[in-house]
Design a protein around this nucleic acid. Structure first.
Length: 308
DNA sequence: AAAAGTCTCAACCGCTGAATC
DNA sequence: AGATTCAGCGGTTGAGACTTT
């Protein structure tokens, strides 16, 4: 007997989230913090299942999310990690703290897959290139390299976590002393909430100015929205004040860690100002042999005009 | 100008393992 | 110990945007 679907209930709303729903959810999480998702629909009156609320938060509303254009560096990192980890998007996303697994998965499926395919077909013609020479690496050699790489990564992760643990413990105690202390929001939150801020601003304007800056809850596309007949994108970029007042943000507090903000979020938090840590250096380091990865890497570097 | 085709990505589905009762 | 519930994950879908014909 499998687990019954959580959304079988009659009256559960599906489909894109409205700005109003987003605000309700964000306000609730502001007060109670993420977690205990089962209680969210009941306590907020949202006609959504708990799962939908959680996904909406983790994939879209959660602070610290960067949206839109992936940088070349991010692309490379994703390609490397995908080669190393496979389609374990959550694991890959943990190396890109500002991206969600859903985002990375989508980007892989819509962009990177194609690019790599293109590259592969392009590289097939060059049978005598360096690429083929890499293929001569024996399986045993490749496995040994991979094991060494993984070992190195594990060691670094342990070291990083031992430092992180101390930080998060102190932050947690801060946060828990004030139920959910949003006033300790780090600077990373302020920037990340631009999306939500725009959303809220759009919603506010909509309520007073019908048709103005239709804030699409499902996608913050106001940034790229056409200005024909509609307010310009600039019109949709609010000042941070509304959000700060909503969240009680103190923009001057930059010391708090994201850990306290995210509460129970399990995603490993890399140093806020060092998104590209040791792992990225390791992954992107051209001089380190990564077995098949270096093959790919070479191909990427050799054919930038194809990929980028 | 409009119909058809393609692309993008938010959201959903269903499975799994862990936690709880 | 077994049943149930929950959170998290990867795969898939479908609506809307965009491009091509």
């Amino acid at each position: 007997m499998g687990r019954p679907p959580c959304c079988d209930k009659v009256g559960v709303k599906k489909g894109p989230w409205t700005p109003e729903e987003d605000i309700i959810l964000v306000s609730y999480i502001q007060e109670h913090g993420p977690g205990n998702w089962r209680a969210v629909p009941t306590n907020t009156g949202l006609m959504r299942c708990s799962k939908s609320c959680r996904l909406r938060w983790t994939n879209y509303l959660r602070p610290g999310i960067k949206r839109g254009n992936f940088t070349d560096q991010e692309e490379k990192l994703i390609i490397h990690l995908q080669a190393l980890l496979g389609n374990r998007w959550a694991a890959i996303a943990s190396y890109l703290p500002e991206r969600t697994d859903n985002d990375i998965k989508n980007y892989w499926n819509t962009h990177l897959k194609k690019k790599l395919k293109k590259l592969e077909t392009g590289a097939e013609g060059q049978t005598s290139s360096g690429v083929s020479s890499h293929k001569s690496i024996s399986k045993g050699q490749w496995e040994r390299r991979l094991q060494t790489d993984i070992k190195t990564a594990k060691q670094a992760l342990c070291e990083a976590l031992s430092v992180e643990k101390l930080n998060s413990l102190s932050n947690y105690s801060k946060a828990s002393s004030n139920c959910y202390n949003w006033s300790t929001t780090p600077s990373t939150y302020a920037s990340s909430t631009e999306n939500i801020s725009r959303l809220l601003e759009g919603w506010t304007r909509n309520s007073t100015r019908p048709g103005a800056c239709q804030a699409n809850s499902g996608s913050i596309k106001t940034e790229t929205a056409s200005s024909q007949g509609t307010p310009s994108a600039a019109d949709c970029i609010p000042s941070p004040e509304p959000l700060e007042s909503l969240f009680g943000l103190n923009s001057s507090s930059t010391e708090a860690s994201e850990t306290s903000l995210l509460g129970e979020e399990s995603k490993p938090v890399l140093e806020a100002h060092e998104p590209f840590s040791f792992f990225e250096s390791w992954l992107l380091d051209e001089s380190v042999g990564h077995g098949q990865l270096s093959l790919l890497d070479m191909a990427l570097d050799d054919a930038p005009e194809i990929l980028f």
